[in-house]
Design a protein around this nucleic acid. Structure first.
Lengths: 339, 339
DNA sequence: CTGTTAGCGCCTTCAT
DNA sequence: ATGAAGGCGCTAACAG
């Protein structure tokens, strides 16, 4: 049987359509008597206003779109959790656009920011490229960049973390412990998804090296897919170097796990023989006792939604760039180098 | 500026509304000449049919709802990934209803299975209770139960795993190694969310114990929240027993990690002093070398979507119960007990 | 305060 | 093969 409509309710309550609509929307323009009568009819019919019709009539989708790559990776999940929980309290639904291929990336970046699809868009961890800019700037929908950036997009709200600074902190920590030979394992610095975090962390790494008078050794930098296996493979190669590093900075905790495996394979003790620092402080990091750089993943999700909701409520506001802090978490994978 | 509508396209192409609609929907009832003309107008106007209007007109939501608890837990994520990837190829959108409280559980279970909200519903890892049954059976929407069950719901499609069997396999593995004192750490067997997996695995555990002539020792069973910390706490208590178990079966890999921590705290080597087997085979299990029971998480998501889509396409079909296999993965946390 | 009416953008008959 | 018209369920503006 078909679900009850506003019309059924009106008939049952013996009122007009408009009145039912007013009751639904908590309009003050209804007498208590009729409100009760209508409410009764609603309850009896187990009526719920059809969201699709509502959206069409309102000209709003009541939906927020989140474009996020590889949404099963722990760090992205944690961001999404912040998004989801914050949004759950609102009247907005969440649509997740999971990006796992470059084609999909481009398609989402260009097609999703549309009024017909969402009232607001969160672009997470995917920095637009120059070719994307026209699509984004002409979008008639508020957009918030989360963990993403682009020089010419200062007119967008952004919630970011200073990855260059994070790279500095990590590297400085290792140097403070006395390390001079410091490896860096990362995603591909140049990649079709335009992930920028590794690039930024690498920059911080190099800045600090230079500041400490340590020349950058290209052999100590290996890049590859963002996967444990791959990181393990890369680390194994670096650790086989005649003058192997005494410390490795992995640009994510996941990759740090790969390094841990490589160290195990090479019979290197961590941290006695090899120090290791990761990045993100995902949940598993604590279990592993991994020293890492914490960033506020959950909070980045929360904040970005709040900014978006405020924009939707108040209308365009002065675009802000919200820079979340970064923190060194010292656990048990870093120590002074062997003498 | 407002997005282009079908009307704009019609005007630009010099045809009627209906024709544009036909072109959009690949109707054969359009001559090639006009089709091209219309397509040109569509491209020029950068027109995309408004999904909301489409849904209202079609009387379909073109949306699949997935009710899933704690969607950030690795095992649920992996199921969701199967759902998402499979659905991405279809014309259906995915709406995730994340359940983290009992109130929300009840609300979702009762309100989500409605035609107005979704064309199909996936209920993941949440077994309906008796009180939910009326809401579910009267739902006018196809429902697929994933990793969930209920005796009176044989009319629903289900994709499940035999957790009792999984519990048996895990326990048998330990017994085969020579263990007689086997602990079991699990979620609360009775819980307001009505998670049933721990209960089933526990049953398998007890069956095998009994079959081996080993009396069940209640001291060896501890239940608590599904969290590493909690599992660690529970394991610590069990391991402090005068006659502590030589092996522990944790009802999830996450909890197994807690046990690992407890063992570490107690200076117990795994597997020399304590054997440990988990459940799920989430990604981290491999890194940890954890012996565990693998279930096809990703595939459960895929299959459930396929069943749902087929139902939507073909209409009601004979409800099936798809039982996915379970597999023992032996790694390095189980061995014969110390003599 | 309340009933009525005109859309929202699209799909689908029904004529032509 | 194509145009015109009615309707999907709701909101909002208007008249009373």
């Amino acid at each position: 049987m078909k679900p009850a409509t506003i019309r059924d309710v009106a008939q049952k309550a013996g009122v007009g359509l408009g009145t039912v609509s007013r009751v639904i929307n908590d309009s003050p323009l209804v007498s208590d008597a009729t409100r009760i009568r209508v409410q009764q009819a609603i309850d009896e019919l187990n009526f719920i206003p059809n969201p699709t019709a509502r959206r069409l009539s309102l000209g709003k989708t009541l939906t927020i779109a989140a474009i996020v790559p590889f949404f099963t990776r722990p760090s992205f999940i944690e961001r999404l959790r912040g998004v989801e929980l914050t949004l759950a309290e609102s009247e907005y639904a969440l649509n997740i656009y999971n990006v796992e291929t470059v084609e999909r990336r481009d398609q989402c970046m260009r097609q999703v920011p549309r009024k017909e699809l969402a009232d607001g868009v969160l672009i997470i961890s995917l920095s637009p490229r120059n070719e994307d800019i026209p699509y984004i700037t002409r979008a008639d929908v508020p957009i918030v960049l989360v963990d993403a950036n682009h020089p010419s997009l200062t007119l967008l709200n952004r919630v970011v973390v200073d990855d260059v600074e994070g790279g500095r902190i990590a590297t400085q920590h290792l140097i403070n412990l006395g390390h001079r030979r410091i490896g860096f394992i990362s995603d591909f610095l140049e990649n079709p998804f335009n992930f920028t975090s590794s690039r930024d962390r690498f920059q911080g790494y190099r800045e600090v090296l230079e500041g400490a008078g340590i020349p950058f050794n290209p052999d100590y930098h290996a890049q590859g897919e963002h996967e444990r296996y791959e990181a393990c493979r890369l680390a194994t190669k670096i650790l086989a170097l005649p003058d192997r590093p005494t410390a490795i900075f992995a640009s994510s905790d996941t990759q740090a796990m790969g390094v841990l495996e490589a160290a195990r394979d090479c019979n290197l003790r961590v941290p006695e023989d090899l120090s290791l620092i990761g990045y993100d402080d995902i949940e598993i990091a604590e279990h592993l006792g991994l020293t890492t750089i914490r960033q506020l993943l959950f909070e980045s999700g929360q904040r970005s939604v709040n900014v978006l909701l405020k924009t939707l409520e108040i209308g365009l506001i002065e675009p802000k760039c919200d820079v979340l802090p970064t923190e060194l978490i010292i656990r048990h994978t870093t120590a002074s180098p062997p003498i």
